[in-house]
Nucleic acid binder design. Structure first.
Lengths: 135, 135
DNA sequence: ATTCAATTTGTAATGATTATAATTTTATAA
DNA sequence: TTATAAAATTATAATCATTACAAATTGAAT
């Protein structure tokens, strides 16, 4: 098994404490957190941590293909360390983002003269937990 | 045939000059414009126009189901008066957003206890025009 | 130990969006 | 038509996520 540090190195990222912790946080919390949430979670453990570093680190992780950036939320960018094919569902009541399986048989195709780098499928509605509380 | 004014009324929107022009602009410009682009285009024709009004109008048009709000661009919200099933492609070089046909046979499904209101498919890559210029 | 590059940090700037309150317009009805 | 209330628009200020920038720190290499 690989340590987080090794995974970073394999992807050409020097494994600083900050980078390890940010990536670890994303690996362990599949909540699609915002920058603020990541910063708030790590700040106690890394007292000198700067929010700029969280931004820089996430940009780097995305560039190196370890993390994906989600545009699903119109307020904040969100980050996801799961790179397997899946789609997202944001609850319009609680705001939480849930993973959903990738639609079977779906193959996003673009015209010949377009080069497709990535695609993102975002769903919006009311999640299971919020449905129950309805009243 | 229906005038823009009539369409607005049918959707419970009082057809003010500002609302007609914003909606008309979206109907005639399938460029998925930002609020700023819409404002800049209409300001000459409506000298007193306020950007707040453009925001308010777009929110209203979205609420009433005449326009959809796109999260595809991480910088700005974008608006689209086309409500037919289709997906979007943003060029990572020029930033333009192109319409693409909805993938055949695709049916986005969510678990039973989730209520799906809408979904959005966003593609990223290099568009046809930018491919050619490559060098 | 010294030097250079990479990384982190703090602060300030930017810019999109929202909040708020005042003003104007529109509809209604006395 | 005039008075009044509601709706819509406007201008301004506030908020807040993100980016820019420069200084400080760390790490690696000679």
């Amino acid at each position: 098994m690989n340590t987080t540090s090794q995974i970073l190195e394999e992807h050409g990222i020097r494994p600083s404490v900050q980078r390890i912790q940010v990536y670890d946080y994303l690996l362990e919390h599949r909540t699609h957190p915002t920058v603020d949430e990541i910063f708030a979670a790590l700040a106690p453990q890394i007292p000198t941590l700067s929010k700029t570093t969280v931004y820089n680190t996430l940009t780097l992780l995305v560039e190196k293909g370890l993390v994906q950036e989600l545009n699903i939320d119109d307020k904040n960018l969100r980050y996801d360390a799961c790179m397997e094919a899946h789609i997202h569902f944001q609850c319009q009541r609680c705001g939480k983002i849930h993973d959903l399986p990738y639609p079977i048989g779906l193959n996003v195709v673009v015209p010949e003269n377009f080069a497709l780098h990535r695609s993102e499928i975002s769903c919006y509605g009311i999640c299971d937990a919020c449905q129950e509380q309805k009243h």
